[in-house]
């Protein structure tokens, strides 16, 4: 299976914010969680992907084609969901159908009204009168009604109650049942991504910090709990960041299995994506001001550890 999305050294400089040589790929048929705190560069990356803004450097490929060739044609196969609705408040479901069926070649009118029915969205009611959850569902109905192969969603679940969020995750799960369907889901609600994502791309300060298979990333990292005095005994190559915990210090380690072997007396717990995000973000905050090559990933961690082991 090839990559549906591929970014190679993409840079976009706004002066006060820079997306710095971003490279990652999303394989076909997968759900990729795009995580990062607010202002990390998620929306900018999505806008670059959709060719809403142009990159200063680098190349972007969608379905194996460079978006510079014909991004408009490529968007025929992409369903996009934004955090804000974007449709005019006076528009009804019927109006949106009239508009979209005259834009998308593959618009499925029946499918659209079926989705509206399924999501309990009245087709004659104005969008402006919809709740936030209903607005998101409307966007999803539009995104799914033109037989898109790729869903790109920017914070679709933020601000929604858990019931609606769960309902939406179920819809996304159904979408990826088809082998050639792919999702890029940007969110800072890591819990949703843990439930749904196969791949994870973590962006911070315009740089990709971590990318790869979600399970591997979660498996590899660990949360080591120790006393403050024990911290100095832990190999620095293993540590992502440490912060004070309830009973001492909590340390995010890059290789849980190696750590378990090296420090059998210490408690090492599995981590969540939220832990990983927090520790990495705090680390870059601590290191701000220093110029550093922050290209840590799971394999790098292993290599660094192997070198240190050799030296020992």
């Amino acid at each position: 299976m090839g990559n549906v999305i591929e970014l190679k050294n993409v840079t976009k400089d706004y002066g006060d914010f820079k997306l710095d040589h971003v490279s990652f790929s999303v394989p076909e048929g997968s759900v990729c969680g795009f995580i990062g705190q607010n202002g990390a560069g998620k929306t900018t990356t999505i806008r670059l992907l959709l060719d809403v803004i142009g990159a200063d450097e680098g190349e972007i490929f969608l379905f194996g084609e460079n978006i510079k060739n014909d991004s408009a044609r490529l968007r025929e196969d992409i369903g996009v969901v934004f955090d804000e609705m974007g449709f005019h408040e006076f528009m009804t479901g019927k109006d949106i159908n009239i508009m979209m069926k005259n834009i998308y070649k593959n618009w499925d009118e029946k499918g659209f009204f079926d989705y509206l029915k399924r999501f309990s969205l009245p087709s004659r009611k104005k969008c402006g009168d919809f709740s936030r959850g209903m607005r998101m569902k409307l966007q999803i109905a539009v995104a799914l009604s033109h037989h898109a192969r790729l869903l790109v969603m920017d914070e679709p679940t933020s601000g929604l109650d858990p019931i609606v969020r769960n309902e939406m995750l179920q819809i996304f799960r159904e979408f990826v049942v088809e082998e050639d369907h792919t999702i890029l889901l940007s969110s800072h609600i890591t819990g949703d991504l843990e439930k749904l994502a196969d791949e994870v791309v973590f962006i911070n300060g315009g740089k990709i910090v971590l990318s790869g298979n979600k399970d591997e990333i979660l498996e590899k990292h660990g949360l080591l709990k120790c006393r403050k005095s024990e911290l100095s005994s832990i190999s620095e190559a293993l540590i992502v960041n440490a912060q004070p915990g309830t009973f001492g210090v909590e340390v995010l380690v890059k290789d849980r299995s190696v750590c378990k072997k090296m420090y059998p007396e210490m408690v090492i717990e599995p981590v969540t994506l939220e832990d990983i995000m927090l520790f990495y973000v705090n680390r870059s905050c601590n290191e701000s001001g220093k110029s550093e090559e922050n290209s840590l990933n799971t394999s790098d961690a292993g290599n660094e550890f192997a070198t240190e082991e050799k030296e020992r």
């Binding site: 809403v52 044609r73 834009i103």
Partner: peptide, 16 residues
Amino acid sequence: EDGKAGFSAVSASLPL
């Protein structure tokens, strides 16, 4: 009207 709705985001995602 487009500005109020933020339609430019939707418009930019259309195959046009």
